[in-house]
Design a protein around this nucleic acid. Sequence first.
DNA 1: ATTTGGATGTAAACATTTCTTCATCTATTG
DNA 2: CAATAGATGAAGAAATGTTTACATCCAAAT
Lengths: 280, 280
Amino acid sequence: MIGSKPSLVARIHNVVGLSTSQRRIADCLLGRLNEAAFWGVEELANRSQSSVATVVRFAQKLGYTGFLEMRQALVALVKKQSRTGEQLLTAPSEAAATLVEVARRDLRNIEQTISGVNEQFLQGVVEMLEQARYRVVIGDGVSALMSAHLAYLLTQAGRPAIQGVEADFPTQVANLGPEDLLVAISFSPYSRETVEATAFARRRNIKIIAFTDRLKSPLARYADFTLTVHGANLLHSHSLAAFTVLAQAIATSIASRDREMALKRLREAERVARPKFVDD
Amino acid sequence: MIGSKPSLVARIHNVVGLSTSQRRIADCLLGRLNEAAFWGVEELANRSQSSVATVVRFAQKLGYTGFLEMRQALVALVKKQSRTGEQLLTAPSEAAATLVEVARRDLRNIEQTISGVNEQFLQGVVEMLEQARYRVVIGDGVSALMSAHLAYLLTQAGRPAIQGVEADFPTQVANLGPEDLLVAISFSPYSRETVEATAFARRRNIKIIAFTDRLKSPLARYADFTLTVHGANLLHSHSLAAFTVLAQAIATSIASRDREMALKRLREAERVARPKFVDD
DNA sequence: ATTTGGATGTAAACATTTCTTCATCTATTG
DNA sequence: CAATAGATGAAGAAATGTTTACATCCAAAT
């Protein structure tokens, strides 16, 4: 378009009269576009086997005032790309583009959650879940879905857990004692019911594990162990992906400790459930 | 901590004794991790409403020699992440190892599910969900958890959906007509209730979307659109991770079509719900 | 062989960014 | 209410990175 600024890549392709070393610089840039965004003059000079001066002149020949301006263009380019998703630059259908975008976020959520997990904490969580007499899982909104899932997995792993019902959190907590465990799940904005039930549990010396979004969360204040779960998302609600991974890992850890026990239970459950299933 | 050297994210999570402004800096970084790779001290200071000095001290408290080293870590992180995927390393403790293993599988599940999605199908699914008069989601066992999640997201996106209750699948389907939509979720071994309700819906000319594990699934026979979801897992149950990504993507697509409508609904809901939430 | 024009690299000048110091402020304790 | 410890930001010192000036080199033309 006339008047609008031609993109960096376009400029490189259209500029005429590049010398040999400048050609090398161009190839270097085009080859590793998004890494290059982090390079300085000197680094680019080395990689292209030229000199700082030549790099600067190259940037100027492209129409920028200097190297800095060129790198700014590069940074803008890379930022845009990393937002769009690399394989779908030519976003075919809207829904597909959204899918890729959502998936990217959740992959990231999972990775961040994992790398943020403290090992001793995780081991502690598993042991606490194993040894508790009763286990109650509470959560509100999306967190209710999570609590249902966790309760399901724990039960499957041979450590039955009850999913608390929102209106009844206090009652359910009141039935617990110091040998029991409360798992509280809540993300900003924190559900009053969940937070208060957790505070109550703390006063009663009940063991507490919290799943939340950051250590500053009100839940973290009361919990023996706090696991932070990333859930950045395009909608406002917290994404479940990272949580499910964490929950599954915990359940799997527990199940694998007494494997034959778990297998036996499983076979039994399947036999009983048989009429429920169809052959395919 | 999981991962050979403590990653930047891990450090931020585990470091103790951050002051208020340092906490703000941390939030700022975690919030926009890959943009932050391009920021200088001053920019980060402004964005986190603190000062240059505080930012430098923050980097040092995290164990880096200064801001530069921290940014190097950030750059490395972002470069890796732009390659989307698995750089989870081996971990010492048992629970941590399981976590890494489970996460690996789910990352693959998500990737496989995405690359297996047919674009036109996805677009069709979104449109069908949008245009249907009533939407009912059914599923049994783990799939019940999924159906709850999908119904939740759809409702949030402005297309209310009802989660069918297992025992009542036939009744709920009987109330639907050709303008309505049934979303059926089931994985091997397929739940008899779900399959039969779906067959019934087909006979009544109700529109059908199926989430299942393969195209040979009994659900696929009846559905207008079938989406296959990978859920390989260490336990026997189907993993939710890939499903949640798909569900979220669909909900997001729908919501983004009439954005201001969605925002209005959201604000209203938040206002009503206010007393339920705690400040942090 | 000498001149000429353009491209190149070195190094000095220049600009920006990072780090440190220090005075000030805030909250807590005796 | 004073004393103390810790956190904070302004400002300047230090480091790092960018640009410019200039001497050199090479190829083509005289």
